[in-house]
Amino acid sequence: MPQYLADIKEKEFFIQDEEARHLTRVARHQEGDEIRVFDGKGKQFAARITRVQKDFVRGDLLEPIPLKKSALSLQLCFAPTSRNTLEDVLDKCTQLGVSSFQPISTRRSEYDLLKKWDGKQDRWTQIMLSACKQCDRGDVPGLLPPLSFEKAVARPNLPSLLAYESEETHTLRWGLEKLGTPAELSLYIGPAGGWTDEEVTVAAQYGVLPVTLGPHILRAETACIAACAKLL
C-alpha cells in the first residue's frame, strides 16, 4: 500500500499542497479510503481519509505500524562523482536503509559539491523522500553539509571503515569484527580516482580501518550501493 508524508498529531493526520494533490488527483483517493501515512521521523500509521478539500486532506489514525530498521545505523561518507551519481546513491542507499549521508570532497574529486550545494538540498531531500515512499520506510535519512575528507575524519566520530582498492585481505566482515560489531558505523567511499596515500595515512591516524570490497575495482557509486547492501 502506498504511503504519504503527513503532519501526524495524536489521533489525526493532515496532508497539504503537492502531497495532497498527488493523493487525490493522481492516486484518486477519496473520503473513506484507507492509506498509510508517515512523518519522515519514524512514525507510520494505517489511516483513513475523513475529509478532502482543495490541496488539503485530513484523516484518522487507525493503528501504528512498527518501524523496520537495520540493526546497524550506517552513515555513508562518500565522494560524489557527478550530480546523477549523487542522486542515484541517495535513492538506492535510502532504500537499503542508510541512516545519514555525509558528502565529502577528496584530493581526487572532480565534482565540486561545495559549489553545487546551495539550492539543491530540497531536490535531494525529495529524492530520499520518494525512495522512502517506494520502499515503505518511515524515516528519511539525514543529509549533512559537505566536508573535506580531512575534516570529516577528524571529527569526533563513529567507528569507521574505508573502502580501499589497494587493500586485499581485510574484508567488511573483518572490519566489523575488529571494531567490536558496533551498532553505529561510518563508511568512507572515495572518488573515481581512488584515495591518495596521504588520505589513507590520515584516516589511519584517526582509527579508520581500510577494507576491501572484493577483487574488482568498482565504480564509486557501485561501491556505495554494494557496500551498504552488504553491511545492512
Rank of each mutant, 00 (worst) to 15 (best):
F56I: 03
G190E: 02
K115Y: 00
V208I: 14
L161T: 00
R107H: 05
I35F: 12
R48A: 07
Y111K: 01
D139N: 06
C93K: 11
T85P: 00
G175W: 00
C93V: 06
R108Y: 07
W174H: 13
E165S: 06
T94M: 11
F13C: 05
Y206C: 08
L213V: 08
L147E: 08
M128R: 05
I217K: 11
R25G: 11
K11N: 13
F14W: 07
K178V: 08
H170Y: 08
V37T: 11
E34P: 06
T201K: 13
L147M: 14
N84R: 13
S148N: 10
D197Y: 06
D88F: 13
W174R: 03
E184I: 03
S130K: 02
P64M: 07
L213K: 06
G138S: 15
V37M: 14
D136C: 09
T85V: 01
I127G: 01
W195H: 02
G207N: 09
A27S: 13
L176N: 03
F78D: 06
L158N: 06
K151D: 15
R155K: 10
D33R: 09
P2K: 10
T222I: 05
Q44N: 13
Y4H: 14
S105T: 11
P64R: 08
Q16S: 15
G119S: 06
L5V: 12
D88Q: 15
R123Q: 09
T212L: 05
P66H: 03
M1I: 12
P145M: 05
K133Q: 12
G40T: 11
D91H: 15
A79Y: 00
A227P: 06
V89H: 04
R58S: 10
V208F: 07
